[in-house]
């Protein structure tokens, strides 16, 4: 897992306390809304996202930048490539 600090996101989606599969649905929804090259930050406390979000990026051809652990949730950073 890639841990990152100080990533500047263009758009943030806060889905803390939302369970599976909201992390994937929100990711898909937000990625459709942003421009190529922009960075999406997803805040979630759902552990399954640790596996699912990098896999989703690999499958769809987008860049998984990494995660940042914040208090009791994670911040995932994804750059839109396609």
């Amino acid at each position: 897992m890639k841990f990152v600090d100080n990533v500047k996101a263009d758009v943030t989606a806060d889905i803390v306390y939302m369970m599976c599969p909201m992390h994937l649905l929100k990711l898909d929804e937000m990625m459709k809304k942003i421009e190529k090259g922009q960075i999406l930050e997803i805040m979630t406390d759902y552990d399954g996202a640790l596996e699912d979000i990098p896999q989703w990026c690999e499958k769809t051809g987008n860049e998984f930048i990494g995660i940042h652990e914040d208090e009791d949730y994670f911040k995932f950073y994804v750059r839109k490539l396609v």
């Binding site: 806060d14 889905i15 306390y17 939302m18 369970m19 599969p21 909201m22």
Partner: peptide, 18 residues
């Protein structure tokens, strides 16, 4: 908007998972 809430009912994705 921006206020977090813990759902009472878990299951599907209805109402944005809330």
């Amino acid at each position: 908007e921006g206020v977090r809430i813990v759902p009472l009912i878990y299951g599907g994705i209805q109402e944005g998972g809330r």
